[in-house]
Design a protein around this nucleic acid. Structure first.
Lengths: 358, 358
DNA sequence: ACGATTCATTGACACGTGTAACCCGTGACG
DNA sequence: CGTCACGGGTTACACGTGTCAATGAATCGT
């Protein structure tokens, strides 16, 4: 309705009233108003525009050297630091890459990978923001993320995004939405890291070595289904493997309990969620008097260094993750040319490594 | 110094010209202008102010229920998501907690702690931003951090902040600057987690058990000095302990090499940087034919579960970290009442745990 | 019937920044 | 001497939001 302001405008009184009048003047212990570029300008005796030009050393506009110095000195004296929010508001875009954190005690392998990714992104001048999504639905998470107007989102798949959610993010300015999970999301740049491969390699290796009654250790800890479910599925998919699901917690008690009833299970091999669970169980089985790999073959995953310290040395599935730099530069390209990178990219490879426990 | 605009102001022509005219009109594939609250207002047929009131469900201002519905529906239809930067620009403050990431492969114990801290902060409605500081000086890091106008900064001590840096951050609006490092910084709320304690407990334990020629394993990996240096210093500070520094990398080769020349070192005990290094070295020593703890006592740190899997079981220093929730609520209090929490708080406790390797 | 009070809504400003467009001397050149 | 170019700056606007003060309309009290 009344969308055109046809009311006569009063002269708009160009009162240069002092800023800093937050309506509570009296008992303020002067909360040290953070200096703005206007303060710098005032102190240097130039206009705010000049300050901006100097501090962003714009080549296009020519400012005399004396003025530059004055401005720099004023900025230094006031300890001026630009306001990132204001800057990106004006610019219309950010360099934020959103990296939803998993609340899971994700393994050392992935920790390292994520760390590396962060550093690589920093090096490309992105600002990495971790943002939890604990207990959020896809819709809620997408909205919360979109508020930050990130230029890219790298989701590890802890919250399942619908195509609609991806659209929300893109509408909010995200030039790349990347899923690292096992399954691609329509509209997103899916960089698939299919954990099923891991389980498949492990089971295939065991079958190859003549074991086919395979127990699969699934962590009881919350939040690990994201990794454990596909690994289990992968193991199940191997022809000739007869798998049985065995929940276990990451504690000595849980491992001992499982080992205690092992003989009644009728299994000749076990594939654990990862090396840590494998080591824990292997120790418990040995303490129970079982021979590894004679009575039972044990297979881990992730190829951690400590896996080689136990005797017998732990066989495992070695996972080749993309380097953080690789993924970061991929993100960078996607941001620059949104339409270029697309579709499914398979980035992970898994190889069984036989040591002594199989 | 013409700081007062005395030029007569033209009527300022209230032209309601269409926004979105970025000077490149012709070949635009319509980059989907992200919807603003103005768009919502237009669609709902109300003013922008009303939209703001409704969407922030302000209790103070009463808006009729029909209008609320109209606005909500319009927002839904457009997929409107508020712009966090604009919001906090207007608000004058953020809820960002800056958590400089270490580029170090920090141990599982600290990973878990940091994860927990993040989640706890999220639960208190803070936005956690990881921000690397690789190769930055204290000055540079402080400036970079200040740009985000965080309400709190939790530094792990990877970059050493001067009092001046802390002042910069506070001037930029940080209500709490918290250092987790071994040493307090003037002006900051120092929550000291002194790693020296760890080394001291370990060495004291070894001395107690009659060993005083102690090798101290220091990782060759970059970035761990932050933890390893104070642990070493702590060990050295124990009366009666004669320590010797032994650099070692986290690889089997490095451990084997060190074990190979062990007998020539004339040591009867070793305190490793953490359990992982301890396990690695212990295995190498055993492979070299040395008896643990007969020939050499081995002590780790962090009390990882896997440390109990080797034989002999690894003695270690158990570290009691504050819970993430605890630290988070402490941050929260500091933000609400900046002057309340202050000074040094010692948050860490360390206890030697004897198992079988000492 | 008319001022007083409540209700629902809106106009206008401020937050801090970047940048396009403009302005004003001054020396060069025709 | 006019004008042209150009160096050195400044003015003005836009980005998207929250919120105070003001405005009409409707209801109430007497």
């Amino acid at each position: 309705m009344s969308h055109s302001s046809n009311a006569p405008i009063p002269p708009s009184s160009p009162k240069p009233r002092s800023r800093r009048t937050p309506a509570t003047p009296p008992p303020e212990p002067a909360p040290a108003p953070v200096p703005t570029s206007a303060d710098v300008a005032r102190l240097a005796g130039v206009s705010r525009a000049t300050v901006s030009y100097v501090l962003n050393n714009a080549e296009a506009v020519r400012i005399s050297e004396p003025t530059r110095r004055k401005v720099r000195e004023a900025a230094e004296e006031l300890g001026y630091v630009p306001h990132a929010a204001a800057r990106s508001l004006r610019a219309g875009h950010t360099r934020i890459v959103l990296l939803p954190t998993s609340h899971v005690p994700v393994g050392p392998l992935y920790s390292a990978f994520l760390n590396e990714l962060q550093w690589a992104l920093r090096r490309l001048d992105y600002t990495v923001v971790q943002y939890g999504s604990l207990g959020l639905t896809g819709d809620e998470a997408a909205r919360a993320w979109a508020e930050l107007r990130p230029v890219a989102v790298i989701s590890l798949g802890e919250v399942s995004l619908s195509a609609h959610n991806v659209a929300t993010l893109k509408r909010a300015g995200a030039r790349a939405v990347i899923t690292l999970g096992p399954v691609g999301v329509p509209g997103a740049h899916a960089l698939v890291m299919d954990q099923a491969e891991v389980g498949a390699r492990a089971a295939a290796h065991l079958v190859e070595r003549g074991r086919n009654r395979i127990g699969v250790i699934v962590p009881e800890e919350d939040g690990l289904e994201l990794f454990s479910a596909p690994r289990l599925a992968g193991a199940r998919s191997v022809p000739g493997a007869r798998t049985q699901v065995l929940p276990m917690a990451y504690t000595e008690e849980s491992a001992a309990e499982l080992a205690g009833r092992w003989r009644s299970l009728g299994l000749d091999a076990v594939f654990a969620y990862n090396d840590e669970y494998a080591m824990l169980l292997m120790r418990a089985l040995q303490d129970e008097g079982l021979d590894v790999p004679g009575d039972v073959a044990v297979m881990g995953a992730d190829d951690l260094l400590i896996g080689r310290l136990l005797r017998p040395r732990l066989s495992t599935v070695q996972i080749e993750l993309p380097t953080g730099d690789h993924l970061a530069s991929l993100v960078d390209r996607a941001v620059r040319e949104p339409s270029e990178i697309t579709g499914r990219h398979d980035l992970m490879s898994a190889t069984a490594v036989r040591r002594e426990s199989t």
